[in-house]
Computed example of a mutant assay.
Amino acid sequence: MSRIPPQKAPLFGGPGWTAILLAGQRPGVDPLAEAFGETWKAQVRIAGEAMLSRVAKTLLGTPGIDRIVVLAQEPEALFTGDCAWLADEPKVTTARSTSGIAASVAALAGSAATPFPVLLTTADHPLLTPAMVEAAMAGLGDADVGVGMVAASTLLAAYPDNKRTWLRFRGEAWTGANLFALGTPKAKLALEAWSAVERDRKKALKLLWHFGPLLAIRAATRTITLAGALAQASKRLGFRAVPIALPFAEAGIDIDKPSDHALAEAILMTREAS
């Protein structure tokens, strides 16, 4: 892991949280970056500022976050333009991603420079607020892993036309919030499982099938809740995972396509105007 700049090393090893900020992208040309004339998705500007810069400022402004590791294929290449200030921020370091997100995070989490507890989020989440981050950290409790989720009833009440990937369980459908709380070394077991299912993360039934046919059938027939499904899957793998139901509709909106960008920009402009 490289530190930027070396003369301003972060104060690692404190009692607070480490935030790993995912700022890489999949191989090939990213459609959103291309649409906005950028090489890197994280540098796409929204409401006048690059997404990576916005998310980093949110994390730094959240009580309890002591350090940030920006994880990307070429993290130093991102620290230009709006994001140039990150190179001089003593609480920020960088790490290069490897063959996959989960494997890259597993290589960092729990190290001397990236101690537990760890909060994982993404650069394409410019609507993130300190309140959302604090809720995700508090929601972990004594579990090994917490998964930030937003209920369909919460998100669609505020943004009825928004298109998300929904995981449907008994009583409610859910979408991810790109917020994960990793509390203990057992979280590495979750990262191993994530690595195995990473390519199916947006295909609900295929994802659940990795944890056994019975669980997949119960989810398909909506005879199990999200909390029940996470409890069963994680117990089978040797750790305890809990869903963290976030009461913020915007927590479920990340930026994958121009329509997401337009919605998020309108939300940010309204926020900043008020």
Score class of each variant (00 low, 15 high):
14 G>F: 12
225 T>S: 12
98 T>R: 10
134 E>K: 13
123 A>T: 11
78 L>Q: 04
133 V>E: 11
248 F>M: 10
200 D>E: 15
205 L>C: 10
236 R>Y: 14
119 L>K: 07
7 Q>N: 14
112 A>S: 13
122 T>P: 07
129 T>K: 05
17 W>E: 03
192 E>Q: 12
262 A>C: 04
195 S>D: 14
250 E>L: 00
71 L>P: 01
269 M>A: 15
218 R>P: 11
143 A>P: 08
204 A>T: 08
254 D>M: 08
61 G>A: 06
34 E>F: 13
178 N>L: 14
132 M>S: 02
210 H>A: 08
48 G>L: 10
197 V>R: 06
182 L>D: 10
74 E>Q: 11
158 A>V: 07
114 T>I: 03
145 V>K: 00
66 D>I: 05
150 V>S: 11
136 A>N: 04
213 P>D: 00
79 F>T: 04
19 A>G: 11
8 K>D: 13
171 G>I: 04
135 A>H: 11
253 I>L: 10
20 I>T: 11
177 A>E: 08
227 A>T: 09
221 T>W: 12
188 K>I: 04
225 T>L: 01
58 T>G: 02
160 P>R: 11
235 K>N: 14
196 A>H: 13
59 L>S: 11
33 A>Q: 03
137 M>A: 05
125 H>K: 13
150 V>G: 00
29 V>A: 14
95 A>K: 03
62 T>F: 04
220 A>I: 06
155 L>P: 05
95 A>L: 02
80 T>C: 08
270 T>G: 13
268 L>E: 07
173 A>P: 03
53 S>H: 00
241 A>I: 02
210 H>L: 07
232 Q>F: 15
34 E>Q: 15
30 D>I: 05
174 W>E: 01
84 A>G: 04
265 E>R: 01
208 L>N: 13
215 L>M: 10
30 D>M: 04
48 G>V: 04
70 V>H: 00
254 D>T: 14
196 A>Y: 01
140 L>N: 03
63 P>W: 07
76 E>N: 07
86 L>E: 09
134 E>F: 12
262 A>V: 09
261 H>I: 08
147 V>E: 08
130 P>A: 08
260 D>N: 04
46 I>V: 06
74 E>W: 02
169 F>C: 06
115 P>H: 09
118 V>R: 10
194 W>K: 13
218 R>A: 04
242 V>A: 04
179 L>V: 05
49 E>K: 14
12 F>T: 15
47 A>P: 09
2 S>N: 15
44 V>I: 06
122 T>H: 15
112 A>E: 13
125 H>W: 08
136 A>C: 13
10 P>S: 01
115 P>K: 12
75 P>C: 10
202 K>Y: 15
59 L>K: 05
263 L>T: 03
73 Q>A: 14
46 I>G: 02
257 K>L: 13
39 T>I: 12
241 A>L: 01
195 S>M: 12
144 D>Y: 04
262 A>Y: 00
202 K>Q: 15
246 L>K: 07
81 G>D: 10
146 G>W: 02
52 L>M: 09
123 A>H: 06
242 V>N: 06
168 R>M: 06
61 G>L: 02
129 T>A: 00
25 Q>R: 07
